[in-house]
Write a protein that binds this DNA or RNA. Structure first.
Lengths: 168, 168
DNA sequence: TAACAATCATCAGTACACGGACGAATGCCT
DNA sequence: AGGCATTCGTCCGTGTACTGATGATTGTTA
């Protein structure tokens, strides 16, 4: 499908691709924006030593109450290895608790501790500011549309990264 | 302007921020899109064992001819530690060559080898396809606007990540 | 010229991010 | 019940990404 929408100005074909400056390549800009947001997040949450990914996991946990690692992995869009890694760090800081699930002894049920919950509260405003600053260069209208497009791109490709198999 | 457009679904203030689903947070979506593009890139360049970052560095090198590590770092938006790390891998694969600069013995001048150039050629089409697929969910018009906004966001914040000091 | 600050690369340490392999537990299927 | 594929977590290895510290070199300035 979709085999040759060349011709319309931009969209040059694979030919002269590598002469395209980095600044105009989607992958490059996406990576850079990711870096920028991470830097802003850490800056806004200074003193609390937390990262965007950890914040995502804690947030998800807050919204879900209890969750197995694999459920968490799907929720935040990471593979299970990575989630286990991050959770180990969070557990070391006593922000979450992990215990073997009673129903299925293969699984580990994860919960937020009080400390975890408290951290989430403290960090909340900083996280909001970081997100706000990330998009600050766009006018409100553009910002909303940008977010919609972003969501569309992510949803469209949700099936091809990490947790490909049993999604559903 | 825009001081409390609450009510209209989105844009709530920092208050109930953490009740916002992950799927609607900029940082989350940006991270996911970055993952997706990386996955697509690797998939499209299968067999050639190369990553987007390595491709960026090789591309930059191709466009610049020769470059010191620090120049390269600024060009691709990475810190010098990371660049040195990636370059070490590329050098191990004989894709680049590093030698101490004659003018300034603190610096290392980096060049593309023939193998590096050849790899760049081979990978080019795959890289283009990956970029194309990353944005496939958007109509051409939306795609262009999205890219413009993306560039705007990155430029707006160029000074706060990594190579902050001597950038002009 | 001799002390000094700045610059560049590297090293060590930490954190994300993934694939592959493995053991334990589970569910199914005969 | 016994076998067997699947699922879940973990371990190992690789690759990005940054901070902080260190050593070598350079440029400046007293």
């Amino acid at each position: 499908m979709a085999q040759k929408a060349a011709r319309t100005q931009g969209t040059q074909d694979t030919e002269d691709w590598h002469s395209k400056p980095l600044q105009e390549r989607p992958g490059f800009l996406i990576r850079r924006l990711h870096q920028i947001h991470t830097a802003l997040f850490v800056e806004e949450c200074a003193g609390e030593s937390i990262t965007p990914v950890q914040y995502s996991i804690l947030s998800a946990l807050d919204q879900m109450g209890v969750a197995e690692q694999i459920v968490l992995a799907r929720a935040v869009g990471l593979d299970t290895t990575n989630v286990a890694d991050v959770l180990a760090r969070l557990e070391r800081q006593k922000l979450v608790r992990r215990r073997v699930s009673k129903h299925d002894k293969r699984m580990k049920a994860v919960t937020l501790t009080q400390a975890g919950n408290a951290l989430l509260q403290r960090v909340d405003a900083g996280a909001a500011r970081a997100h706000e600053r990330t998009l600050a260069a766009l006018a409100p209208k553009d910002r909303e549309r940008f977010m919609r497009d972003l969501a569309k791109l992510v949803v469209f490709n949700r099936d091809l990264d990490t947790m490909s198999p049993g999604v559903r």
